[in-house]
Design a protein around this nucleic acid. Sequence first.
DNA 1: TGCTAGCAGTCTAGGCGCGGGAGTGCTATT
DNA 2: AATAGCACTCCCGCGCCTAGACTGCTAGCA
Lengths: 351, 351
Amino acid sequence: MIESTGLDKRKAYILATVVYEYIATAEPVGSQALTQKYNLGISSATVRNEMAELEASGYLIQPHTSAGRIPSDAGYRTYVDRLMQPEELDVDERRRIRDELYDATRELDEIIDHTTRLLGRLSNNLAFVTKPQQETPTFKHIQLIWLSPQTGVAIVVTSLGVAAQSLFELGGEARPDDLTRFSNALNARLANRSLAEVVEIEIARAAQEAGVSDDLRNAVVAAAQSARSGEQPTIAAAGAQNLLDQPEFQDLRKLRSILRIVEEQKTLYQIVADAMTAETVSVKIGHELGSEELADFSIVTVPYHFGSHALGMLSILGPRRMPYARLLALAAGTAETLSQRLSDVDYFPNS
Amino acid sequence: MIESTGLDKRKAYILATVVYEYIATAEPVGSQALTQKYNLGISSATVRNEMAELEASGYLIQPHTSAGRIPSDAGYRTYVDRLMQPEELDVDERRRIRDELYDATRELDEIIDHTTRLLGRLSNNLAFVTKPQQETPTFKHIQLIWLSPQTGVAIVVTSLGVAAQSLFELGGEARPDDLTRFSNALNARLANRSLAEVVEIEIARAAQEAGVSDDLRNAVVAAAQSARSGEQPTIAAAGAQNLLDQPEFQDLRKLRSILRIVEEQKTLYQIVADAMTAETVSVKIGHELGSEELADFSIVTVPYHFGSHALGMLSILGPRRMPYARLLALAAGTAETLSQRLSDVDYFPNS
DNA sequence: TGCTAGCAGTCTAGGCGCGGGAGTGCTATT
DNA sequence: AATAGCACTCCCGCGCCTAGACTGCTAGCA
């Protein structure tokens, strides 16, 4: 572990301390401040040398020449994955969450809203929760259209309306007839099947039946996947005002981005979607969110379940400089309690 | 009209121009700027004199000695009620709203959400819409409890749970028996009646039957009203990020208040609740919102209907310096279209 | 060889003072 | 009554400057 990151024990400890201190103060951390506040047993000069190397390895950043250091994305990542002391919710807090969720409300939507607000309040950040879709969308129709000898387009219509189109290369040897035949085979197999089911196998069988090229099959698979990503459950959000307190967001443009993205929901969902299949809580830090606008933020996400079925996700969005250990524990604990809460009443008689 | 406000024609025109200009620029309006930009046919010195009088009458405010004037709440109020040129939505815009609302979505909740976003986008402000409650709450039980020879308490239980209690004076001559008798009479008349119905008459009849004092009757009416105000439908909001663009909200504390209040919903609902019974669009300006935190904002509200029944309200929240004429037209137009849209599908088979 | 003390250099945040500019109220004049 | 002119007031933005924090580097020490 130590070798794999190029960090000896002392460097690791210094990195951890810098991250910890920066999370607490939001100020670049200098070598003196560090040795004074934490008795490291080494002098500030030594820390300076170590810091310079940590910066060279990409874990720390110096905002300007005569300033302290702040963690880079890689620094945070290392901190979260290897260095930080994991936290647990204490019993009191766990009970408070439980009590709130087991409040009078019965309706699923209300429980989700309630959970979102609770999470926003406890995390002091922006919380958002994807609502489970009651009705799982199904295939209605798929149509392959011949555009030119080289290209075609696949259009997938789901029970939610037109959902996806995907342009593809024909590979040269296909004729309009092939497409029609393939379309028919696909429709026979897929009509009214749930999008959530694994349809790749069916597509492969239909492709074999119709005797079409691999390119064509792959194009249809892509269109199906894209249609699936169109299933975007609505998202409840709460706690945006908490972000206003963070010193790094006095810059209004960043806030604007956040509010817009949260309201739009689509981007937000795409960012966290892959956490749905995760076993446990996952974290995306800064640029890992895949958007320059969100580069100063991090998101903690954890799925919640009904039985063994993942229903949705619970996320906390905050400054990159968020208290990771605490928020990971909070998100995990809340998701667990929510899952329990949901399993106590049979909301999903059909599943 | 002129006498009632202490404004002659010229003062009225100057006031209107100041408000108009301030809405456009967000800068205090000086006498020179005014005469240069609008050819008033009088000199800046004359305008200065008029402005001084308008300030003395409370329509204008001078932020500091050597600055121009900005409108006071009273100034805005006069502008909105009497001076401004009302606007209409142009045909194009009206059609765009219509097209958006008649989009594929079917579900009531989605239509409301969609409308909210649309309104946020078109208004460039924060829009919020109260969602109709599908189930109208009904009386379950009312209980009058004798506390002392002078006081009692009324507890109203609705189908939504315990909703209201109201302490009252007995007026001296009532005994526990009277309260029990009145309770019984009330329960017989009110059980399972909708809270939305006019229940005052029923209460009066029950009071007569039981032969109790006016004080007692009024206490019960108060409790019933308070129970009714407890019906707080959820609120959809959109466009918070638009407020960030307004120069007067660079101060983050104000934004924080807004976001908190919008998220809380309760306060927001209470503020606009009385607009529900209005015939048309209504405006609350600055301190009229009844909260120091909201003193820099104004809210435009208009109810939307299903048939003749008011279902909810559509509001725009923005800086006090909002383009009133435009937003009034926008809110009214959107509400009208929404009402039509709802009446085209039978969402409320029971009403 | 690794650590430390000291030092010179660098950069930022924030306090201070100044002057331009916009606007006012007042007074004298038409 | 309306206006022109004038002296005065106040804010805002600019540049200047200093205090403070931190760095990298060098030389000395276990």
